[in-house]
Amino acid sequence: MLSKRLVICLDVRGGKLAKSIRFVDTKDIGDPVAKARQYYEEGVDELVFYDITASRENRDIMIDFVEKAASQIFIPFSVGGGIRSVEDATKLRNAGAEKVNVNTAAVLRKELISEIADAIGSQSTILSMDIRRVPPTEKIPSGYEIVVNGGITPMGIDALWWAKEGERLGAGELVVNSIDADGTNNGYELKLTRMLAEAVGIPVIASGGAGKPEHLYDVLTEGRADAALVASIVHYGEYTCRQLKEYLHGRGIKMRMSY
C-alpha cells in the first residue's frame, strides 16, 4: 500500500525565499535550496516550490532555481506559480521538477490542463485549486467557489465541478487549498477536502490551515486526503518533519519512516 505523504511548500521570489517567511534558523534566510535540502534530509516526502512573483521576466530565474534544487533534492518536487503554457511546464519538467502545478491559467483556459498532460503526462500535471466557502446557489451548488489572485477574485465556478473537470482533462493530482482555513492554524477544511477526495479518482493534497499534528491526522483520515501540505508550522520551527511523521505513524497512519 502507498504511504500517505507529508508535503512542504516553500514560497520563492526571484530565486530567493520569500521574505514573508520568518525562519528560526536565520542562516538559511534567502536560500530556499538549503532549506529544501534540510527538509529532504529530515524526511519530507515531497516538496512544492511556489513562485510568488510568477512574472514572465522571472521565468528564467525560476528554471535556474529548479536546476539547483534538482541537484540537491533526491525526492519528487513540484513547481507552481505563473505556469501559463505547455512551454513553461515542459521547461520546468526538463529542469528537474517531477510535477508542475497549474492554477489561474487553467481556470482562465481549461484546455491548458490537457495540453500539459499530453506533453509531460498526467502523473506530472497537478491542478491547484484555491477555494472559498460561499452560500450555495444554483451556480455554486456545492457551496465552494474557485477563486484566483491569492483568493481575491471569485470566478463563479463550483469547486466540485472544477475538480471533476480537472480530472477529466487529465490532471493527475489535485491540491485543495482552502482560502478560509489558510493562515488560521485551526486545521484543514475537512468537509471540502473529503467532498473533493470522494468525487475524484486521483490523489488529493490538502492545503491550508495546518497548525498542529492532529490537523494532519484529521485530514488524512476524516478528510480522505492522500497527502497533507504544510508550510508555516515547519518554517517557524514549531514542529520538525520528523515530529509530524512520527506523530502520524504513531497514530497508525502509513508513513515513510526510513530515510
Partner: peptide, 13 residues
Amino acid sequence: DKTLKIPHMGWNE
C-alpha cells in the same frame, strides 16, 4: 479495488 488508482504513484515498501 476501485479505491486504488492507476498509475501507482508514491512511496511504497
